[in-house]
C-alpha cells in the first residue's frame, strides 16, 4: 500500500522499469545479420527477414570461429548509372565488436526483371559469393575463420529449402 512520497516515487520507478520498451537496436547481436541498400522499386522482392531467420535458426557462427560474434552482410541493389563509390561500403573484420562486415552489389536490371523466386535465388547466390570473399577481407588474415565450412553449410541449407539448385 502506497503511503509516502517515497513509495510513490519507488512505485513509479518500478512501473517504468517494467514498461521500459526494449529497442530493436538493444537486442543481442545475431550470429548472422543482414540488411540492404536498394532502389525503392525493387525492395518488395527482397526477402531479408526470411534469409536472416533461416541462417540464425540453423547455423551457429561459433562453429566457424571463436573470434567472431556476428557476420553482417549488406545487399546492394542500386540504379547502375549512379552508384556511390565502392570505397564507402565498408568491408572487413572489426575486432572491437567481433563483427565481420561484408557486402555485394547485385545487378539491378537482372533483379528488376526477376520474379520473386528468381530474386530469392539471386540473393542466396550473392550471399554465398560473399562468403567466399571473407578470407580476403581487411583484418581477416589474423582471424581463424572456417569460411569453407560456412560456405558448404550455407549452400546445403539454401539447397534444402529450394532457393538454389542442387
Amino acid at each position: 500500500m502506497i503511503t509516502t512520497s517515497l513509495d510513490i516515487l519507488n512505485t513509479y520507478a518500478i512501473n517504468t522499469a517494467q514498461n521500459k520498451k526494449k529497442l530493436v537496436s538493444e537486442t543481442p547481436m545475431l550470429n548472422f545479420d543482414l540488411t540492404a541498400v536498394c532502389w525503392h522499386e525493387v525492395y518488395s522482392k527482397m526477402q531479408l527477414l526470411q534469409i536472416r531467420n533461416l541462417l540464425n535458426h540453423n547455423l551457429k557462427i561459433s562453429n566457424y570461429s571463436k573470434e567472431v560474434q556476428t557476420y553482417f552482410f549488406l545487399f546492394i541493389i542500386e540504379l547502375p548509372n549512379n552508384k556511390p563509390p565502392e570505397k564507402i561500403w565498408k568491408k572487413g573484420f572489426y575486432k572491437k565488436d567481433e563483427v565481420i562486415e561484408n557486402n555485394l552489389h547485385l545487378d539491378y536490371h537482372q533483379f528488376e526483371k526477376a520474379n520473386e523466386s528468381e530474386a530469392l535465388t539471386m540473393q542466396a547466390e550473392a550471399y554465398l559469393a560473399g562468403i567466399l570473399q571473407i578470407p580476403t577481407l581487411r583484418g581477416m588474415k589474423k582471424v581463424a575463420f572456417d569460411s569453407q565450412q560456412f560456405y558448404q553449410d550455407c549452400k546445403t541449407l539454401f539447397e534444402n529449402v529450394g532457393w538454389i539448385g542442387k
Binding site: V24, S25, D33, T35, A36, V37, C38, W39, H40, Y43, M46, L48, F72, L74, E78, L79, P84, P85, I88, W89, K90, D97, V99, E101
Partner: peptide, 18 residues
C-alpha cells in the same frame, strides 16, 4: 551515399531505400 559511412550499428534493423 555519405550516410553509409556511419557505423553499421546505426542501420541495425533498418533498410536503406533510395
Amino acid at each position: 551515399g555519405k550516410e553509409m559511412r556511419y557505423p553499421k550499428s546505426t542501420f541495425k534493423n533498418l533498410v536503406y531505400l533510395v
